Computed example of a mutant assay.
Amino acid sequence: MKCTVFVPSHITGFFEIVEHHNPLIKGSRGAGVTLNRGVISQVNVTDGNGEIIIKTNGSNYPLEGSVSYKTLDLLRKQFPEEIRWDEKKITIHHQTQVPIEAGFGVSAGSALGTSMSLSKLLKLPLTYNQAAAVAHRAEVELNTGLGDVMGAVMGGFPIRLEPGAPGFGKADRLLDDKVTVKGYEKDFKDINFEDIKYKSIGKDGGELYVISKSLGTIETSSVLKSPEMTRRVNKVARELLGKLISSPQISNFMDLSLEFAQKTGLIDEEVMEIVEVMKEETIGASMAMLGKTAFSISQTPDSSVEGVMVAKVDSCGCRFF
């Protein structure tokens, strides 16, 4: 039995860490954007002797510390009798379309791909949100992320209003989406639903692009485990969410993201130099949280910055192939 899931990468612009003893309620408030590049997970379940194989981009990945293995293990503990785990061979292949440990939510993509695929293949009694909640819990318990699972599930420009996993937290999104049919807007009554495509659209009717340039990695857990960094992040972030809700525009989201990056001190001079160039050419630019990556939202795929990655805004969220 085989299943394939695509999870859009999620870039966080700003965030507030919210602690809680329950990992399903622990998480973050904040806002971000999802890309049509992300993590493609193919999971294969056959008869076997309990063997588990996890690969990322073709290379074997150690089980210890793996968010994919943590997700599988949580499912195994939640359903110890419903599935004969010791009689299965589970192979998980992740193909990443974005840099790892650079602020694109790859760990959330891996966890979601694992949870969604196994829930479907093994016919586990879980809804979409319940399966996603397992991925969120895996991220929280490993300190690899706090809000990327919710963002990847929502799609578009997610706003995390209250912390927690899907089904526990509360989220909204910026109103950037329109229904288009073969590239043209139509009245609802005239739509042929077989032709519907969902796109994130700029004011001129063109699609929105996410342009990014990665300069290195930041280990997310090193930031999330630091009490001093938590205090600094939360002090800056607390007011930003209210400002975005008061003016829910993409340009405002990007301005607030840059304000967050600068006031927290998370952005360094090297990334800031690229952000300043991107800011002049696009709707806005900032640093991806948490990664040494500059990103911008643009109405064109063009950039004077060399070696950028260009993606489109993804409005559909996590989905099966």
Rank of each mutant, 00 (worst) to 15 (best):
M150G: 02
D314S: 09
V305F: 08
G183R: 09
N49E: 10
F188H: 10
G113P: 04
T91E: 13
T230Q: 13
S222N: 06
T282E: 08
T144R: 06
P227M: 07
G202A: 03
L244T: 05
L126E: 00
F15R: 04
T282C: 09
A152I: 05
M116L: 14
N252I: 03
G265T: 12
I40F: 01
G38T: 11
N49P: 00
K120N: 04
T56H: 07
V223P: 03
I90C: 00
A131D: 00
G151I: 05
E239C: 01
M272C: 11
F168M: 03
V210D: 02
A261F: 07
R84H: 14
L121M: 07
C316F: 14
S257G: 01
V33A: 14
Q97S: 09
H93N: 14
A131C: 04
T300F: 06
A31H: 02
P80G: 10
L174P: 03
G30P: 06
G103V: 02
L241V: 06
V43A: 06
V181D: 02
K88N: 11
R319I: 15
F320E: 14
E51W: 03
G169I: 03
E51S: 13
R231T: 10
T91N: 01
S119G: 13
A111I: 05
T34I: 10
G65Q: 07
E82A: 13
T96G: 02
Y128V: 11
